[in-house]
Design a protein around this nucleic acid. Structure first.
Lengths: 149, 149
DNA sequence: TTTTCATGTAACTTATGATGTTTCTTAAAT
DNA sequence: ATTTAAGAAACATCATAAGTTACATGAAAA
């Protein structure tokens, strides 16, 4: 089943952006992610909507962090990306009136809800500055693949 | 993102099968699930491989439970269906040498592992007979949609 | 012993949804 | 004015789960 790696990729990008100083263009980010600028804009648009990044048009424009990394959690970015559910597991809805289907679906969804709660709670406990820790003394690596991420 | 409702659907089927007495044909199950017999065989094959159901060819053949419902847990069926991961969330693997990607991926996967452990543990605690409880006194409903699930 | 019913399996087709692409517009700096 | 870059809509591609077709195998019934 298909995986959505946007969270991982966007976190990676945001931390690099933080050490970059100047705005990062969609094109630059796209190169880093081996994708293209429009996909980057689409994804970043969600983050901007929630206030985590800003975008500027024209010369010298691009994307910038709107707040320090310690104000942003994994949960924030996860939510901003707007994926409805974290699970590949879904429920049947063919016989909503069948008591057996109801019992089955309740058992499954009870578990999913509990596991998702835990997951979101943990995501909320991790802020991005913690992920960047220990690398601040490294020579700030440049951005795109051909420059050595 | 696409959902996999096989677990929910198969549990539903297995419980109905338990009260059916005679083997259920792939065609009958397919009608119940609004799908077709080959898909049913494909899915049931996983359950047979793990010993939860048996299949018999020819006249009067079909699928039967190989053990009572109280010997089968949600986890058993989940595993038998053979889905690798329960999450839609994946990790980037473009810069496996980049310490930032590593830190990001470790943070995410720590959470995923913990949440998945909880989920599997809970699935292991629920056996199918519990889901069927309370309906044993009902007139055993017949199987296919047009017969009133 | 032939027919019918049912699973087993492989190969192929379809449907869906994310991702990628093109094109054009808008806006800001040079 | 020109260049640079985001915004946005429309369209194309791709991956893959699900569905379908076709045929082989095996068991019971006629």
């Amino acid at each position: 089943m298909r995986k959505d790696s946007r969270l991982s990729r966007m976190l990676h990008v945001l931390i690099h952006m933080d050490r970059l100083g100047s705005p990062a263009t969609s094109e630059r980010i796209a190169k880093m992610l081996n994708t293209n600028p429009v996909v980057v804009r689409r994804t970043m648009a969600g983050l901007r909507k929630q206030g985590y990044v800003t975008s500027v048009k024209g010369h010298g424009g691009g994307w910038s962090l709107a707040m320090p990394l310690n104000k942003i959690s994994l949960l924030d970015i996860h939510n901003a990306l707007g994926e409805s559910s974290v699970f590949t597991i879904g429920l049947s809805d063919e016989y909503t009136h069948c008591p057996i289907e109801q019992a089955v679906n309740k058992a499954i969804s009870d578990v999913l809800i509990e596991a998702e709660s835990l997951l979101l709670e943990r995501f909320g406990e991790v802020s991005l500055d913690v992920l960047a820790e220990g690398f601040t003394d490294l020579p700030s690596p440049s951005f795109a693949k051909d420059e050595g991420c």
